[in-house]
C-alpha cells in the first residue's frame, strides 16, 4: 500500500522518519511557547522552505491542505463576525496551526508508510518495561494492512447480498453478517498463523 507518500529525489525525502517526526514535535513545542504570531511566522517560513526543498508539486500539497484550511477559515469567519472580540487571538491560533498542519503534511508526503511504521515500532519498543510488546504491535499493524482490502471486499459483498434481497436499507442486514463473518474469520486466520509457527508467547526479543 502506497499511502499518501509522494516520491521525489530530494534531501527531505531521504531524512530518516525519526528526524522528521522529532523535528515536527520540536517545532510544535516551539510554536506553542513562542509568544504571538512569531512561532507561526517562523514555522510557516520553514514549511515553505521545506516545500521547495522537497520538490513536491504545490497543487498536490494544496489538495491535502484544502479540508483543514476551509474548516479553519469558516470557524475564523464565524468567530470574527459573531464575537467581534478575541479575533486577534483567534487569528494567531489559526496561523499557528495552519503552519503546523503544513509541516505535518510535508512529513507525511515525504515519508514512506513503511518507514513511519518502523519508527512507531521503535518508539513502542521503549515501552517494553510497561509490558508493551513491539513485535506483537508490528504483527498487528502488518495484519491490518493485509486485511484492509479483505474487509473492503467483505463490505462490498454483504451490501450486494442485501441489494439482491431488497434490504439495502436495513442496518442489521449490513452489520450483523459482517461482524459475524469477522468473528468466524478470526478463528481461521489465527489457526493459519499458528500453523505457520507463530507463537504468541514469544515476546520477540
Amino acid at each position: 500500500m502506497l499511502g499518501l507518500y509522494l516520491h521525489r529525489d530530494s534531501a527531505v525525502h531521504r531524512w530518516p522518519a525519526g528526524v522528521k517526526m522529532g523535528g515536527l514535535l520540536a517545532v510544535t513545542a516551539g510554536v506553542m511557547t513562542l509568544p504571538g504570531a512569531w512561532g507561526a511566522a517562523l514555522a510557516g517560513a520553514l514549511g515553505l522552505g521545506l516545500l521547495a526543498a522537497a520538490r513536491l508539486p504545490v497543487g498536490r500539497v494544496l489538495r491535502e491542505l484544502r479540508a483543514p484550511v476551509v474548516l479553519l477559515t469558516l470557524l475564523f469567519g464565524f468567530q470574527a463576525l459573531l464575537a467581534g472580540t478575541g479575533w486577534a487571538e483567534a487569528a494567531v491560533a489559526v496561523a499557528r496551526f495552519a503552519a503546523l498542519v503544513l509541516l505535518a503534511t510535508l512529513v507525511t508526503l515525504t515519508t514512506r508508510v513503511a518507514d513511519m511504521i518502523d519508527l512507531f515500532e521503535r518508539v513502542f519498543g521503549l515501552l517494553r518495561p510497561l509490558g508493551v510488546n513491539p513485535a506483537k504491535l508490528a504483527l498487528m499493524l502488518a495484519l491490518t494492512i493485509r486485511f484492509i482490502p479483505l474487509l473492503a471486499e467483505q463490505v462490498r459483498e454483504v451490501r450486494m447480498a442485501q441489494r439482491a434481497r431488497g434490504v439495502e436499507r436495513s442496518i442489521a442486514a449490513l452489520f450483523v453478517p459482517l461482524l459475524v463473518k469477522i468473528f468466524t474469520m478470526a478463528d481461521d486466520l489465527a489457526a493459519a498463523l499458528e500453523a505457520r509457527g507463530y507463537d504468541p508467547a514469544d515476546n520477540g526479543r
Partner: peptide, 22 residues
C-alpha cells in the same frame, strides 16, 4: 496507520497533518 500516512479516514484523508488539524 492513519498517522503513518495511509489515507484511511473517510474521504481518503490521512497523515499527521489531519491529526494536527482542527
Amino acid at each position: 496507520l492513519v498517522a503513518a500516512g495511509l489515507p484511511l479516514l473517510a474521504g481518503g484523508r490521512g497523515g499527521v497533518g489531519v491529526l494536527m488539524g482542527p
